[in-house]
Design a protein around this nucleic acid. Structure first.
Length: 427
RNA sequence: GGAGAGAUGUCUGAGUGGUCGAAAGUGCCGCUCUCGAAAAGCGGUAGGGUGCAAGCCCUCGUGGGUUCGAAUCCCACUCUCUCCGCCA
């Protein structure tokens, strides 16, 4: 959410941001509504001021035992109360409408973000690792998983419907190993480990930016105000809602884990093979709350990216980093890098990580602030990045490390988390 | 699921329907004292909206109601805590 005062003072900047992000919001309509609110608000406040004055004079009258005056003032007060009561519902409605519209206003992308329409305009900025050359016919991840008995999709679908899966055997062990591996490595950098609720109230989703716009991607728990989170980010943001932190407490750095749930509405027929796009997965997430300082945000953005790619390097997975263009990045983001891992069977890189910084956009929604050294209360900055998300990461992991004999080599860095095991072999 | 208690500022905690945005303590900041620190003393210290500003308005869990006027009375809801039951 942007500062309303900023939108008033810089409507052109906001309109340009919306255009760059393919966001159809009508800023003029918002400002128009805002003016209505302000006008009506002034009227109501004037009336209330008058009412308060009457109230004070009434006390005087009571003290002086001036019953005639008191009676007259009460009559006047009654009148004011009615006037106010008549104006209040409209003011409340308009204010709420303005708020809902405000939620839809996108953040201003950084000038360094490439301008573009969709993911095709994202700009690769770094490559790492050698794409493997196989001297045998490599399998795709699903074929590999079937052959090694690592997954049971049919029976999982029987239980939970399309886009479900059950990891089996060493794939199940590997998934847990990956979570542990990522959790450990990021924690070792000083990030506080956090296992967070996978369900959260609506305010957490509003705070994070998933609501109201992404509501259709989220599962609701019936007859409650609870929803299943699509990322630990939602819960962590919610945890700090309405807090005023001390400047010296910042930055707060977390490595958060929770199962993640996504409806994947509107993706029918897309990525239906294997475990690429599923409704439930596990994710270790990096999350940072820092001072309201652009440079500090940028430094953390780079650091979070570095943390993630170090994990991929340890897993010996070739990847590239793309600078996500304005049209492809989310509403709340100032800047976004995606890390894409090489998928041999598709002959292309695909998103496995997403690294974003938001400035105050989430903090304003969730009302997370801190008291600055000089006593001023400011909104914090927030950032987040995937550390590891699985089973998606199993796709490059299995495909890249498959061997001529049909087995899969476990990268050395992961072996300590799998009891020293070196290969996944057919049973 | 059953029974009870509660929700106030950084925290603890007081609060008779009007002079309460709110006592007191604590924390924090400044000053005095001191070579310096501690202790002690004095002063300051909630957030938000609106306005050039003075100011005005709002906020005592949330929403409604009573009233000229609600932290205070009434209703509903939410949440927290304690005990019992069930349970990983």
């Amino acid at each position: 959410m942007l500062d309303l005062a900023f939108i008033r003072n810089h409507p052109d900047i906001v309109k340009e941001a919306a255009r760059l992000k393919n966001n159809p919001i009508d800023i003029d309509a918002l400002l128009d509504l805002d003016q209505q609110v302000l006008t009506l608000q002034r009227q109501v406040e004037d009336a209330r001021a008058l009412q308060n004055q009457l109230s004070k004079r009434m006390q005087e009258a009571a003290k002086n035992k001036d019953n005639a005056l008191k009676t007259a003032l009460i009559a006047e007060g009654k009148e004011m109360a009615e006037q106010i009561k008549a104006m209040e519902p409209l003011l409340a409605t308009l204010t709420e409408e303005r708020q809902q519209m405000l939620y839809l206003v996108p953040n201003i992308p950084d000038p360094s973000a490439p301008v573009g329409k969709d993911e095709n305009d994202n700009v690769p900025i770094a490559y790492w690792g050698e794409k493997p050359r196989f001297d045998f016919e490599p399998l795709d991840h699903y074929a590999l998983m079937q052959k090694l008995d690592l997954v049971d999709i049919e029976r999982a679908v029987k239980v939970a419907g399309a886009r479900s899966y059950a990891l089996k055997g060493d794939a199940a062990r590997m998934e847990l190993a990956l979570m542990n591996f990522a959790f450990d490595r990021i924690a070792r950098k000083g990030f506080t480990p956090l296992i967070v609720p996978a369900m959260a109230r609506s305010f957490a989703f509003i705070g994070n930016g998933q609501f109201p716009k992404g509501r259709d991607q989220v599962y609701a728990v019936e007859d409650t105000d609870l929803f299943l989170v699509g990322t630990a980010e939602v819960s962590i943001t919610g945890m700090y809602k309405d807090e005023i932190l001390k400047a010296e407490e910042l930055p707060l750095t977390f490595v958060g884990f929770c199962p993640c749930f996504r409806q994947e509405a509107g993706t029918y027929g897309k990525d239906t093979r294997g475990v690429f796009r599923i409704h439930q997965f596990n994710k270790v997430e990096q999350y940072v709350i820092c001072h309201a300082d652009h440079q500090e945000s940028v430094r953390w953005h780079e650091q979070l990216l570095k943390n993630s790619v170090e994990l991929l390097q340890a897993l010996e997975l070739p990847y590239r980093v793309v600078n996500v263009c304005t049209g492809d990045m989310g509403d709340g983001k100032v800047g976004q890098y995606d890390v894409e891992s090489w998928i041999p069977s598709e002959g292309r890189y695909r998103e496995t990580h997403s690294c974003s910084y938001f400035h105050e956009w989430q903090a304003r929604r969730a009302n997370i602030r801190y008291r600055d050294e000089d006593g001023k209360v400011k909104f914090v900055h927030t950032l987040n990045n995937t550390a590891i998300a699985s089973p998606r990461i199993l796709i490059p992991l299995l495909e890249i490390h498959q061997q001529a004999d049909g087995s899969v080599r476990i990268p050395e860095a992961l072996r300590p988390y799998m009891g020293g095991q070196e290969f996944i072999k057919a049973r």
